[in-house]
Simulated scan of single mutants.
Amino acid sequence: MSAASRFGWNPAHRVRLAAAVISPVILGAAAGGILLLLGERRSLTIAIALPAVFLAAGVLISLIVGIALLVRSRRRRSRARVAAAHIEGEAVGQRTERESHRTFLARLDHELKNPLTAILATAAGRDSPEWHTVDAQARKLGTLVRDLRKLAELETRELEREQVDLELLLQEAVEAIRQRDGASAARIRVDVTRVPWTVPPVHADIDLLSLAIDNVLGNAVKYSAEGPIEVRLREESGWAVIEVADAGRGIPAVDLPVVFDELARAQNARDVQGSGLGLTLVSTVLARHGGDVALRSVEGSGSVITLRLPLR
């Protein structure tokens, strides 16, 4: 945007401004030319005291510097307003995108629920291999729809916070695995740092936090058929840190940048049942609590997923 348009000057304003600036120069030149033509040769001498010269020079310099600083300040404020408007525009765009995404997930869940129910009801009681395949695939799709619904709810539901003992929550998650699969639970070791101090409780929504931890532990069990699984809890610089490490198949390096994306599945995980939404759910839960999640993995060696929650 030009200076003229920024200050609201139209062409008529610019013409009047130019005339106001140039007119004194033209009038002065015209008067001087007429006097020269008339043979006027007299001179005018003005005596000014030296201190007054320095004073006038100082005032002039101060005036010039002040005008320059004022112009610079206005330019900075203008740039700041433009930057703030740009940032606000991006934030509004992101909010709109998230709202559209949640609306899409809710609509998808609604549209798929009835057809899935009909397919499962039709496949029930059929003994042929074909119908068994239909039933299995319908249940897989039902799990995907359920997880999509969970994801949409996670992004909108109000958090019901309370004081949560993370060590107790981890023990309950391991016990839930033990009830389903005692052999896998026997491979899990929970290590809690208590020296020089224990990990304080976190102010969190216990249901959502349980969902995140169950997903992380479930992945460790699914993708490591054998070998130890270590769960570590510690306090670190005002954060509660939970690490879940396994000696499983790991994730190929090419898949690591997208593991938290919706429906993303590693190339070496196609044989394991899953929706590809587990880590997305975990990431959403941690973000809503002001925390974060990170994953380190080496294909063929195992993975370490780190959850961080603020203690204050």
Rank of each mutant, 00 (worst) to 15 (best):
R6F: 14
H13G: 15
H13D: 12
A19E: 10
S23D: 06
G28E: 05
L36H: 15
L37A: 14
G39H: 03
R42V: 14
S43I: 01
S43W: 07
L44T: 07
I48H: 14
L50E: 02
V53M: 03
L55R: 14
A57S: 06
A57G: 07
G58W: 10
G66M: 02
V71Y: 09
R74L: 09
R75Y: 06
R75L: 15
R77W: 12
S78F: 12
R81G: 11
A83M: 12
A84T: 13
A85W: 00
A85Q: 04
H86F: 12
H86T: 15
E90V: 15
G93T: 13
G93F: 02
G93V: 11
T96I: 09
S100K: 10
R102W: 12
R102V: 05
T103K: 07
T103I: 09
T103D: 02
A106W: 01
R107I: 06
R107V: 10
R107K: 15
L108G: 04
P115A: 06
P115D: 06
I119A: 00
A121G: 03
A121W: 00
A123N: 01
G125Q: 11
G125N: 11
W131G: 05
H132R: 10
V134W: 00
D135S: 13
Q137H: 08
A138L: 06
R139H: 05
R139K: 07
K140I: 06
L141K: 09
G142L: 03
D147A: 11
A152F: 03
E153P: 15
E155P: 12
E155V: 14
T156F: 15
T156R: 15
E158C: 11
L159C: 12
L159Y: 09
R161Y: 04
D165S: 12
L166G: 03
L168T: 10
L169H: 00
Q171I: 04
Q171V: 11
A173N: 00
I188C: 01
V190L: 14
D191R: 15
R194L: 13
P196S: 01
T198C: 13
P200I: 01
P201R: 04
P201L: 11
D207E: 07
I213F: 04
A220K: 04
A220I: 13
V221E: 05
G227E: 05
W239S: 08
W239P: 05
E243Q: 13
A247I: 10
G248W: 03
G250R: 00
I251Q: 02
V254P: 04
P257R: 01
P257I: 08
D261W: 11
A266L: 12
A269P: 13
A269F: 14
R270Y: 07
Q273F: 15
S275F: 01
G278R: 00
G278I: 03
T284Q: 03
V285L: 00
R288G: 05
G290A: 09
G291F: 10
V293G: 09
V293N: 11
R296K: 15
V298R: 14
G300L: 05
S301N: 10
T306N: 04
L307I: 07
L309E: 02
L309F: 08
